[in-house]
Computed example of a mutant assay.
Amino acid sequence: MTAARRWRDVWTAPGERLFVQARDEEGWTRHRILSNSEGDGAVAVVVDGSRVLFIDAERPAIGRNLWELPRGQADAADGSPEATAARELLEETGLISVESRLLGQIWAESGLSGDAVNVVQVRVDPLARRAVAEYSALRWIDMHRISQEIADDQIRDGISIAALALAWAKGQLNTASPA
């Protein structure tokens, strides 16, 4: 790669986990966002029988709340995508993971972000819950309703939709309507 096409840091802030890089192209500048976390992020597809868990997440960048799957960036102590998903699930919902399985990776915005997101299927103990959680509004949606919720603009988050599509493609979600 020539010197003109090397990435350079153009924005970072103390305590911020994200940074922006740029590189010069022919007549324009390309940007990308990266995180300085210890690994790729993770999204938890929490399945309980025929239901999937969503949280009501405030997203200031778009000025609205969205129903999303729990997710977040890796921490140094996590050690695996499954550990990242379990920690984020606990922090965001208070629910405790009892079993998890890595389904694969997605890229949230491959034209802008250089970080992958691991998709982890999680089963929780419905009776065990930590009292403190980042999000108090939780919603369990029946698998056979997920497609309609997306069509009705009730689920609009790209990471959640991509993670659900991967889980469905891997045979982990039965989204067919019950007979």
Rank of each mutant, 00 (worst) to 15 (best):
T2H: 13
T2L: 14
R5W: 14
W7P: 00
W7R: 01
R8I: 07
D9C: 15
D9R: 13
V10W: 07
V10R: 05
V10L: 05
W11K: 07
P14I: 05
G15N: 03
G15I: 08
R17T: 09
L18N: 11
L18I: 10
L18V: 12
L18A: 10
F19D: 01
A22E: 05
R23I: 04
D24F: 10
D24N: 12
D24M: 14
E25W: 06
E25P: 08
T29K: 05
H31C: 10
H31A: 08
R32K: 04
I33E: 09
I33T: 05
L34S: 03
S35I: 10
S35K: 10
N36Y: 09
D40V: 05
D40F: 07
D40R: 03
D40Q: 09
D40L: 07
G41F: 00
G41D: 02
V43E: 00
V46Y: 01
V47P: 01
D48I: 11
D48W: 08
I55A: 02
D56S: 13
A61K: 09
A61Y: 11
G63E: 04
R64Y: 09
N65K: 13
N65M: 14
L66P: 03
L66I: 13
R71T: 07
G72I: 02
Q73H: 13
Q73V: 09
A74E: 00
A74T: 02
D75P: 06
A76G: 10
A76E: 12
A76H: 13
G79I: 02
G79C: 01
S80H: 01
E82F: 05
A83M: 05
T84N: 00
A86E: 03
R87G: 03
E88H: 09
E88K: 05
L90V: 12
L90K: 02
L90P: 04
G94D: 02
G94T: 01
S97T: 07
S97A: 12
R101T: 12
A108N: 10
S110E: 15
S110A: 15
G111W: 08
L112E: 10
L112N: 08
S113D: 12
D115I: 07
V117K: 01
V120A: 02
V124N: 01
V124K: 00
V124Y: 00
D125A: 05
L127S: 10
R129E: 06
A131K: 14
A131R: 13
E134I: 12
Y135V: 05
Y135I: 09
L138K: 03
L138R: 04
W140L: 04
I141K: 02
D142S: 11
M143T: 02
I146Y: 01
I146D: 01
S147K: 13
E149D: 10
A151Q: 08
D153G: 14
R156H: 09
R156L: 08
R156N: 08
R156F: 06
G158N: 12
G158I: 14
I159M: 08
I159H: 03
A167G: 03
K170S: 06
G171I: 04
Q172A: 11
L173F: 04
A176E: 14
P178L: 15
A179L: 15
